[in-house]
Every structure is written in structure tokens, then in C-alpha cells.
């Protein structure tokens, strides 16, 4: 019995993301998420795919605690997201790195300042920032471009800066919302390889929301497919499912 409890406990701590019968409804229309359950373990690399309106964005917003579930429980790093108080949200979000389709860089600042910005927000001492930012830029292959203004960079490079900014605080989970949506195939592939390397080397749990069929099929990772607010498929080493 005791051994069983220990095993159970170990299993729980391995799950960095847990959704238990989660529904989310907005004031109008059908529910954005309808009674979904899933668990993601520490160090996993997961794709979330589905058409527009399938509930992917709502899922990401729930994980970021931008939204709270209408019913069910969302746990991230063992914290019940729905029970977090407003003042606890900033500290909670420091466990999550996020990358967007449109990069969302600060165009009035250079590469270094964009990455350092994430460290300043969590009040890292300046001395530490000076050490950590070049390291993060080296991971994404932009160590030599730290002085460049973001507008001078290609789309792929801008996404790398965004990735460095998401990683510099060393979050255990990285959420990437359509990270290749604005990139050409080569840059898309480079970004995905980079994410894979970060996942393998640092053990960061990575969740990628994407429409990119080729990449999903080529990467052979876990794929969760959503449709109209429900999970229709969850496969280890899965592929992009044609919904037609």
C-alpha cells in the first residue's frame, strides 16, 4: 500500500501539466473546451494541433491563467491555476516561457535589451543579467548579434530572440503558440530543431501549438489533436490528422 502511494506520488510530481475534466464556456456560443482531460509529464515535447476554433488558444490561455476554467481543474507545476489569487499570478507565470507567432519583440530596443527585459521583470540583479543574457543568446545562435536592433533581423532571427527571451529565466515549461506561423520552411525547421535541442539538453517541457503539418509529421513527437473543444486524438510519436 505504502509502495503504491509512493509510486502514485511520484507519478503526480512528474506531471507538470494536468487538465481534469476541464470545460470553458464564453457568454455566447458553444463551449470553447468541453470536458477535456490530459496530462503532460516533465520533459515532454508535445504538439497541439487543430483547426481554428478547436480550443487550442483557450487551452494556452488557461495554462497561462489568462482565463479560469468554467469547470474542472487545471494544474501547472502542481499549482491549481483556478485557485490562484490575482497577486499570485505573476510568480506563477515565471514558471512558463512563452513564444508567439508574431514574436512580440520590443522594436525600440536591441537584441540584448529584449532578452534582458525578461530578467529585469523578475528582478534579477544586473550582474546576473550580464551573465545570463549572452548565455541565452548563445543557445539560440545569436551571440554575435546582441547589439542589433530587432527590425534589422530576419523573421527566423526575431523568433530566436523571442525564444532566448522566453528561456533566459529558465522556466520549466515553454509554451509556443504557432512559433513558425510567420516563418519560411527553412526557418520553421531551424526553430523546431532548436526547440527539440532545448527540450533534450535542458529538460524543458515544451508545448507547441501549430498548423504546420510537415513539421508535426517529421518530428515524431506526441501529438494532441483538438476539434470543437474536445481532444479527438492523443498519440505518442503521432502525426497531423486530416480532419476532412
Amino acid at each position: 500500500m505504502a509502495l503504491h502511494d509512493k509510486k502514485k506520488k511520484k507519478k503526480v510530481t512528474d506531471e507538470v501539466i494536468l487538465l481534469d475534466k476541464v470545460s470553458k464556456s464564453y457568454s455566447t456560443g458553444s463551449p470553447a473546451l468541453d470536458n477535456i482531460s490530459l496530462s503532460i509529464k516533465k520533459g515532454e515535447f508535445v504538439f497541439i494541433v487543430g483547426d481554428s476554433g478547436s480550443g487550442k488558444s483557450t487551452l494556452i490561455k488557461l495554462l497561462l491563467r489568462e482565463l479560469v476554467p468554467t469547470s474542472g481543474r487545471v494544474e501547472v507545476n502542481g499549482q491549481d491555476v483556478g485557485k490562484l489569487k490575482h497577486r499570485q499570478v505573476p510568480k506563477f507565470r515565471r514558471n512558463l516561457g512563452i513564444v508567439f507567432q508574431d514574436f512580440r519583440l520590443l522594436n525600440d530596443r536591441n537584441v540584448y535589451e529584449n532578452v534582458a527585459f525578461a530578467q529585469r521583470i523578475v528582478q534579477t540583479p544586473t550582474k546576473e543579467i550580464r551573465k545570463n543574457v549572452p548565455k541565452a543568446l548563445a543557445v539560440v545562435g545569436l551571440a554575435g548579434k546582441y547589439k542589433a536592433k530587432t527590425r534589422q533581423l530576419s523573421g527566423g532571427e526575431q523568433q530566436r530572440v523571442a525564444l532566448a527571451r522566453a528561456l533566459v529565466n529558465e522556466p520549466p515549461i515553454l509554451l509556443a503558440d504557432e512559433p513558425t506561423g510567420n516563418l519560411d520552411p527553412k526557418n520553421s525547421w531551424d526553430i523546431m530543431q532548436l526547440l527539440e535541442r532545448i527540450n533534450e539538453e535542458k529538460g524543458t517541457t515544451i508545448l507547441v501549438v501549430t498548423h504546420n503539418r510537415e513539421i508535426v509529421n517529421a518530428m515524431q513527437k506526441r501529438v494532441i489533436t483538438m476539434k470543437k473543444g474536445v481532444i479527438i486524438s492523443d498519440e505518442e510519436k503521432g502525426g497531423y490528422i486530416d480532419e476532412d
Binding site: 505573476p90 506563477f92 515565471r94 527585459f117 525578461a118 521583470i121
Partner: peptide, 16 residues
């Protein structure tokens, strides 16, 4: 607006 959004996602406190 963008900067504030990023700050929120990264975990900036209200005060910051």
C-alpha cells in the same frame, strides 16, 4: 500595449 502584454506573460508584478 505590446510591452505591457509581454511583461504580464513573463510574470511582472502589478507594481512593476
Amino acid at each position: 500595449k505590446t510591452e505591457i502584454e509581454i511583461m504580464k506573460y513573463i510574470g511582472a508584478t502589478d507594481f512593476f
